[in-house]
């Protein structure tokens, strides 16, 4: 546990020193979201109808951006080998990386999603469902993304390959997340969709770190 907290602290310190990565993902999220009103016109009805989907798709793409550096720097300078030797199981290292990715990318996205939703004329009643869904959804995305980043570690064109592998697996998150916000905007209960999102999280939480750990051990051989 002590080692795990030390790993998490190291990752957070690193992402604090590379603040540009977090800011880049955040800015991408906001700029990409702001393109939609310009492309489809500013009419409140259309925008409000599309807003849940736009916010979710932009969050999905923005969460992918910092993934190829998640293990890349450690792999190149050899600290990944040291991490794997430090006594923690490889799955725990992957879990720590996923948590750090969420804290450095998912949480800022969550904070920016509310203002972006309001700019896209989302009805205020749907905001809690959007944020609640994103809270569970970005965690699943971080876990899936960590597994994907570990799998493509060391591949040629890994950065191009990563979205191709992670996006199909992220489809259920997108479907239920956007459906929860849609339901809330239509005056229905978002509860079943949010519960399904939490079920996805409960499945991804143990499985993704195991897969990522196996891939990390393969990459370090």
């Amino acid at each position: 546990m002590k080692l795990f907290i030390a790993l998490l602290a190291r990752e957070l310190r690193l992402s604090l020193r590379h603040l540009g990565d977090t800011l880049g993902a955040l800015l991408f999220f906001l700029v990409a979201g702001a393109l939609f009103p310009l492309a489809i016109g500013p009419s409140p009805e259309t925008l409000g109808r599309l807003a849940p989907g736009i916010v979710w798709v932009c969050a999905l793409l923005a969460a992918l951006l910092p993934l190829d550096r998640l293990f890349g720097a450690d792999y190149e300078d050899g600290s990944l080998d040291q991490l794997l030797l430090c006594g923690l199981p490889a799955a725990a290292i992957a879990l720590g990386k996923a948590l750090a990715h969420w804290l450095a990318t998912g949480l800022p996205l969550l904070l920016a999603a509310g203002p972006l939703g309001i700019m896209l004329r989302l009805t205020p009643e749907a905001l809690p469902a959007l944020l609640g869904g994103l809270l569970a959804g970005t965690l699943v995305l971080s876990l899936l993304g960590t597994a994907g980043a570990a799998i493509v570690l060391g591949a040629r064109r890994g950065g191009v390959l990563l979205p191709l592998l992670v996006l199909p697996l992220a489809v259920p998150v997108l479907i239920f997340g956007a459906a929860a916000t849609d339901a809330a905007a239509a005056g229905l209960s978002p509860r079943p969709h949010l519960l399904l999102l939490c079920a996805l999280l409960a499945g991804a939480l143990p499985l993704c770190p195991i897969a990522a750990g196996a891939a990390l051990r393969g990459a370090a051989e």
């Binding site: 799998i151 493509v152 060391g154 591949a155 040629r156 064109r157 890994g158 390959l161 191709l164 592998l165 199909p168």
Partner: peptide, 11 residues
Amino acid sequence: LGHIALVRAFD
């Protein structure tokens, strides 16, 4: 398709 691309992407 991802599996096809991934298997052939390593040296």
